[in-house]
Design a protein around this nucleic acid. Structure first.
Length: 817
RNA sequence: GCCGGGGUGGCGGAAUGGCAGACGCAGGCGACUUAAAAUCGCCCGUGGAAACACGUGUGGGUUCGAAUCCCGCCCCCGGCACCA
């Protein structure tokens, strides 16, 4: 071996330790011990063609620090990584270049893996998973079959978000302001046969169990609002002259006496029935116009348009006849698609009534007496009933329960709960996704592959046998989306059609959305090679739930809601032992470009981790990202600041070269060692990495000033710094004469008593202004403090009388004069 | 509009009722060097020669004492957006 290095050179030591860790299997997940466990998980990446950007390592470094710390602190740690590798970009690349998405994906994965290894993350690579591998797809399909058999996966002819540009439908969650979340292409509504997952059946549990997770409050609120539970009543209005009933959903049945009109969504089937002949043309025109309006137009224009149908409904509480309108501000997808309109107490109804000259009747007031003047705006608060016959004087809550009970007794209504959450449209018309393992009988006279006419009996779906999983994708020459809403796979006729016992069948040609693989990957990491089950129940019981899950806030509703849903289904299935998958969740903040703008190729401000590692080293990159500010905060990148953390690492190396085994720390250094250990330990636990690094800088700067640097303190510094800068940590540990790996060393402990100073400097305030400082023994009494203050404050007290003395031990002495 | 988060030196940030600005960047001065870089040391909120005064978006309040707690307002970021 060459002579000891005299200079910190990350380009040499980083590959050296990475090779050591690989060779040594340092981060292999322990099995069968009786130590406590921790499961620390990153949101796994989509391996894009452009490789890692600096946002990825932010969260990954944070979890790596916690993982390395927990191992040292005596935990068995599961810290895996894998690839969410189905998805649009690889398929779009295939459309343009003809390269099979499998090849693109494999290449991108190898780039990502090289970059992650370069950064020294302590993943157990033996558990690496790829959502596109047949072994993984098998279990994704297996879960789909469980959903299907439980009636939670069904087909529906639904008005879906069709994106012609992408040639596929999108989930509501993937449509933002009428444009696709990916790519920003226009999205239109059209009815298509789709596979839908009944997530609404789990709405209440998804809501309730938010109470048992340690998640950011904002994320829990977002999920709550997305689920959007509201309690109210369904009320039935008879229609004059027809044997029809309009059902409405309302959260304010106490305002029934103020209902002066009804509104149906334009799509409501009763529209055709109750429209009078003289109104028919106008109504038909409105319905047509509403149908052609895109989501986007609807959002841009919130005017309360609508037309009278000519029909009248009977208010069940007072027999009043009220006109029935149609208007697009009533949504067909929510509640019953019809409302009772109470303009006095609902802003939208107020606006509609005002523009259409409909009466406004006040039925709730703050005082219990009707207002003197007509209402100028809707009064949406709760209050006391007026103009409501026998219910007058009741408070809102009391009124609601009484009138709902009365309606129920009369067979005119029932209490009901509604959700904003819709069932999850689960099919995509893409190639690069998991095939849905379903097939259908086909009626045909010949061979459909040879062009015979055929009819697919979609109403009779048949599950593929579990033993036949995985159902693999066919090979295609052309990945272009067609106009055929059956999807790209419909063109693979040899794959699609098959014969069994003389009967022809057709496979489902839709594939699953990208969310499918990420809904359960955290389970596969627990038992990645199991061929009999997605994960052994024993191992699931051992490792679940995920103790720490770190990823971007952009997944606050989509991925995190879908994964919770699948987890609960698997819980019901007995496959997992916990109700919730992710106990503690943290979102790392976004890293902006140098100018404070979002990083993007078009702005040209993207920072490439390869360049940073080449110039400063992986450890500097890691520490810099943690030192920028609080993990959760959005913060701008600043390359010149990295030189500061690089200097810190240089000094850790330099000061280690001066290790002196014969030196022992004085009281002050001993105290600082214990204070730093405490600070770093507490800060890692609380994920305050920026202040932990600051504390280690203080200790290092102090050590630099010493004539003799005690080896013992350097050992503690090495242990503290190693989760943050693991390569340097290993290197200095070795320089101090120890055998690797420092990861095997126990985490340093601290003694609270040794953290305390014997003497404290206490500021003396006069009327709240600091005028002097006095040095006192720790825990000095007020009398001692007052005795000490006089000489210190000097002339500030001349000619004044002390009226009051405030003494906070070890903190402050404040004299009021 | 509603919900959530935030506003502190030239910059990133620290301090969650007790000395505002830890730590770092940038900047200044000095040492070393033939010189430069690197490194090391010192200075670095504003005004002021100093004493001192002022200072955490803004206006009030509570308190002996407020960046921190309470009320009103302004601005920035994220989410939702006719859900009856």
């Amino acid at each position: 071996m060459a002579g000891a290095m005299t200079r910190y050179d990350p380009a040499t030591i980083e590959p050296k330790w990475q090779a050591y860790w690989d060779e040594d299997d340092t981060f292999r997940t322990p099995e069968g011990t009786d130590r406590p466990k921790t499961y620390i998980l990153d949101m796994f990446p989509y391996p894009s063609g452009s490789g890692l950007h600096v946002g990825h390592p932010e969260g990954y470094t944070a979890t790596d620090i916690v993982a390395r710390y927990r191992r040292a602190a005596g935990f068995d740690v599961l810290h895996p990584m894998g690839w969410d590798a189905f998805g649009l970009p690889a398929e779009q690349h295939a459309i343009v270049t003809g390269t099979h998405p499998r090849d693109t994906t494999a290449r991108n994965i190898s780039t990502f893996k090289r970059q992650l290894k370069m950064l020294g993350f302590s993943y157990d690579w033996a558990r690496e998973i790829d959502t596109t591998s047949p072994e993984y797809v098998k279990w994704t399909q297996w879960i789909f079959l469980k959903l299907f058999k439980r009636g939670l996966a069904y087909q529906s002819e639904v008005a879906v978000n069709w994106c012609a540009e992408l040639g596929t439908v999108l989930a509501n969650e993937e449509v933002i302001n009428g444009l696709s979340e990916r790519g920003g292409h226009p999205v239109e509504r059209m009815p298509l046969r789709q596979w839908v997952l009944k997530i609404t059946a789990y709405a209440d549990r998804l809501l309730e169990d938010l109470g048992e997770v340690e998640w950011p409050n904002s994320t829990r609120i977002m999920q709550q609002e997305w689920i959007g539970r509201s309690e109210g009543a369904e009320v039935n209005f008879d229609v004059v002259g027809h044997d029809a009933v309009i059902e409405v959903f309302t959260t304010r049945p106490d305002t029934l006496f103020g209902a002066t009109f009804m509104v149906l969504a334009p799509e409501h089937p009763l529209v055709q029935v109750l429209t009078t002949d003289e109104r028919r043309d106008e109504v038909a025109a409105y319905v047509e116009q509403a149908k052609n309006k895109s989501e986007r137009d609807r959002q841009a224009n919130k005017d309360k348009t609508g037309v009278f149908t000519g029909g009248l409904a009977i208010n069940p509480v007072n027999g009043a006849e009220v006109p029935i309108y149609i208007a697009d501000y009533v949504l067909w997808g929510y509640g019953t698609g019809a409302i009772m309109a109470v303009p006095a107490h609902d802003e939208r109804d107020f606006e509609f009534a005002t523009t259409h000259g409909i009466p406004i009747i006040e039925v709730v007031s703050q005082t219990g007496a009707p207002a003197d003047a007509p209402l100028k705006v809707a009064m949406t608060e709760q209050g006391i009933a007026v103009n409501s016959s026998k219910y007058d004087g009741l408070r809102t809550a009391e009124f609601k329960s009484r009138v709902t009970a009365d309606l129920e007794a009369a067979g005119k209504g029932i209490s009901r709960v509604e959700y904003k959450l819709r069932d999850w449209v689960f099919s995509r018309q893409r190639y690069w996704g998991e095939p849905i393992p379903i097939y259908f009988p086909v009626d045909t006279e010949g061979d459909p592959r040879a062009g015979a006419d055929y009819t697919i009996r979609y109403s009779e779906p048949i599950a593929v046998e579990e033993s036949e999983l995985p159902l693999r994708l066919p090979e295609l020459d052309d990945y272009k989306p067609g106009t055929d809403p059956a999807g790209v796979l419909a063109r693979a006729e040899d794959w699609r059609f098959f014969q069994k016992d003389g009967q022809w069948f057709a496979r489902e040609t839709n594939t699953m959305p990208q969310w499918a693989g990420s809904c359960w990957y955290y389970l596969r990491f627990i038992d990645p090679d199991n061929t009999r089950a997605l994960c052994s129940p024993d191992l699931a019981a051992q490792w679940l739930p995920v103790d720490l899950y770190v990823g971007g806030a952009e997944h606050a509703v989509l991925h995190l809601l879908y994964a919770r849903f699948w987890h609960k289904v698997l819980y019901d299935e007995g496959a997992v032992p916990t109700k919730e998958p992710f106990k503690k969740l943290v979102h790392q903040g976004m890293i902006l470009g140098e100018g404070g703008q979002k990083m993007s190729k078009s702005r040209g401000n993207v920072v490439n981790p390869d360049d940073i590692v080449a110039e400063f080293g992986a450890d500097s990159m890691r520490i810099y990202e943690m030192f920028m500010g609080p993990l959760e905060a959005t913060k701008p990148w600043n390359t010149s600041s990295i030189s500061g953390v690089r200097r810190f690492l240089d000094r850790v190396f330099a000061v280690t070269l001066r290790a002196d085994a014969s030196a022992s720390p004085d009281d002050a250094l001993r105290r600082l060692q214990h204070q730093t250990t405490r600070k770093v330990t507490e800060d890692i636990e609380a994920m305050r990495f920026n202040t932990a690094i600051s504390a280690m800088m203080v200790l290092t700067n102090d050590l630099m000033k010493l004539e003799q640097v005690p080896t013992e303190v350097l050992g503690v510094l090495a242990k503290l710094v190693h989760p943050f800068a693991p390569h340097l940590g290993e290197e200095v540990w070795e320089m101090l004469g120890h055998a690797p790996s420092i990861q095997a060393e126990p985490w340093p402990t601290y003694d609270r008593a040794l953290c305390e100073q014997d003497e404290v400097e206490v500021p003396v305030q006069i009327n709240g202004k600091v005028r002097a400082r006095i040095t006192l023994a720790k825990n000095a009494t007020e009398a001692q403090a007052v005795a000490a203050d006089h000489e210190a404050v000097g002339t500030h007290l001349d000619g004044k009388t002390i009226r009051k003395t405030i003494w906070v031990p070890n903190k402050i002495l404040n004299l009021i004069v």
